[in-house]
């Protein structure tokens, strides 16, 4: 894969950068001069102590650590008691995509700020419960595509890998003679080109048709 996705986030991991952009609520513990820009609803130049804001995780985790934390992170609502109850009841029925795009990644960051350790166990519980369903989905990928939309980013990745592995296994079982194939990127590049040409052609046809039937419309459009 050209843009490798690693589960264990590295400094260069695109997924990790996207996940840490998610906003989490936090409360300021000290006065911060000149940082009114962080609060879009106020016009003052300074941030007062006690202000509550939703800021990207990368900023919050940077500010809440160290000897003198500037902010106190609060748990996002999807990791709070009510939502935990929902997940405990039946994790499979939940639309995790709607909870958060990066449910697990975000969870594994905020769990350090949760003193009870509940977030940790709910993450594990959710993944374990949903994994069986995920595996089933990946093996029968022809079934309803709308089910895929309920998965979060990590689950989608697992799902995709699972589908690929299943197709490869099937291929290998059916024919063990190995055919050489064009490289993955080359194939995709060609497909994209074909779509481009097709698209151009369609557009051309369309304008032609328009010209013949309603020239005035085109004229008006140009003006």
């Amino acid at each position: 894969m050209p843009l490798p996705t690693s589960y264990y986030p590295s400094y260069y991991s695109i997924d990790d950068i996207l996940a840490t952009q998610e906003r989490v609520p936090c409360k300021f513990l000290v006065n911060v001069p000149k940082m009114g820009i962080l609060n879009p609803s106020a016009a003052e130049t300074d941030l007062e102590v006690g202000t509550s804001l939703e800021l990207p995780l990368w900023l919050v985790s940077e500010m809440s650590t160290g000897r003198q934390p500037i902010v106190q992170l609060e748990l996002p609502k999807i990791f709070k008691q009510t939502y935990q109850e929902i997940l405990k009841a039946d994790a499979c029925a939940v639309d995790l995509h709607k909870f958060n795009l990066y449910f697990y990644e975000l969870g594994s960051y905020v769990k350090h700020f949760d003193s009870h350790g509940d977030v940790h166990s709910i993450l594990l519980h959710t993944f374990k419960t949903r994994f069986r369903q995920l595996l089933d989905l990946a093996d029968n990928s022809i079934s309803d595509p709308s089910v895929q939309q309920k998965l979060d980013t990590l689950e989608r990745k697992v799902f995709k890998e699972g589908c690929n592995a299943r197709t490869k296994l099937n291929e290998w079982l059916v024919q063990s003679g190995v055919t050489m194939e064009a490289a993955n990127m080359v194939v995709n590049h060609k497909k994209r080109k074909r779509i481009d040409i097709q698209g151009l052609f369609d557009a051309f046809e369309f304008t032609n048709m328009m010209h013949k039937s309603v020239p005035i419309v085109i004229l008006a459009y140009k003006i």
């Binding site: 260069y12 000290v30 006065n31 940077e62 160290g66």
Partner: peptide, 28 residues
């Protein structure tokens, strides 16, 4: 009373983030 240290820290975090994004963009 109104120390500028938190301000500097927040800006520094933003600088670090920018550098990370730029490096990741080119690396990938």
């Amino acid at each position: 009373g109104t120390s500028l240290l938190p301000t500097v820290r927040i800006r520094h975090a933003a600088v670090k983030r920018n550098v990370r994004c730029l490096l990741a963009y080119h690396y990938n």
